[in-house]
Design a protein around this nucleic acid. Structure first.
Lengths: 126, 126
DNA sequence: CTAACCTACAACCAAATGGTTGTAGATCAG
DNA sequence: CTGATCTACAACCATTTGGTTGTAGGTTAG
């Protein structure tokens, strides 16, 4: 399995940016909106009780995190979502979770090897 | 499928805390370390080129995000990872990604319905 | 052309973040 | 008991963040 292949080329700073971008409800909603349908920045901005400039900044944060891209169309800027980055983040979390599973399996393996039937194996771990 | 069942009880603020906690390389490493093996705070702190108090704060951030729990053992505080919270975050990202897939399918459905066999359907898409 | 619209960006501000040092309490070892 | 260790927490500081308003430039509509 090559699950972590796409993770290898992500620097710590890039991962920082992705999770930081996701750590805000407004930005998550903007991401959600742009997943459903490509929209201009001002179109997105109308959904929120804050200034256009504030939404513009949120989009910029998402853009630096590579979660969305912008494309000029006439006078407006269309926001496209980038599912690949999101998928990458999800896989990264899966990888962390896998560590836990490995640990459990490791412990089970030790217990299984040391005590095939009896239950006294003190002092053998670590 | 009840994939999002565990997501329903997560407030925006809680999700904020989870992603914010993950948006720091040191904290991700602490999480990783505690996934591999339960460790005391000072034991964890020895891995990083910063003060004990700084690491203590990072652990506190992870704790408020429910990504780890602490358990007193004598004079030390043992940090346990909480894979459930991590899994929840991963599923949340999957849910966002699913929006994208639904969108694609929706578009395909429209195109497919309008042109069952022929291939000339200009002007029908939004 | 003119007015309305969409965007970019700077300046500013309050609050949160990530680090430090210092102090103090609890627990363990000798 | 004494000293070393582990933790908690406060105070402080620099930087970042999330919001604002204001100004200006490019684009479309009438």
């Amino acid at each position: 399995m090559v699950v972590d292949q796409s993770l290898r080329d992500l620097s710590d700073a890039e991962i920082d940016r992705i999770f930081a971008a996701l750590a805000d409800a407004t930005r998550r909603d903007i991401l959600r909106q742009s997943m459903l349908r490509d929209q201009s920045v001002s179109e997105l901005a109308r959904n929120y009780a804050m200034s256009f400039a504030a939404v513009q900044k949120h989009v910029a944060v998402l853009e630096r995190a590579l979660l969305v891209t912008k494309e000029r169309r006439g006078r407006e800027q269309i926001v496209h979502s980038n599912p690949a980055a999101l998928r990458t983040a999800a896989r990264l979390l899966d990888a962390y979770e896998a560590l836990w599973r490995d640990r459990i399996h490791r412990i089970e393996a030790i217990l299984g090897a040391e005590t095939p039937q009896s239950g006294t194996d003190q002092g053998t771990q670590q």
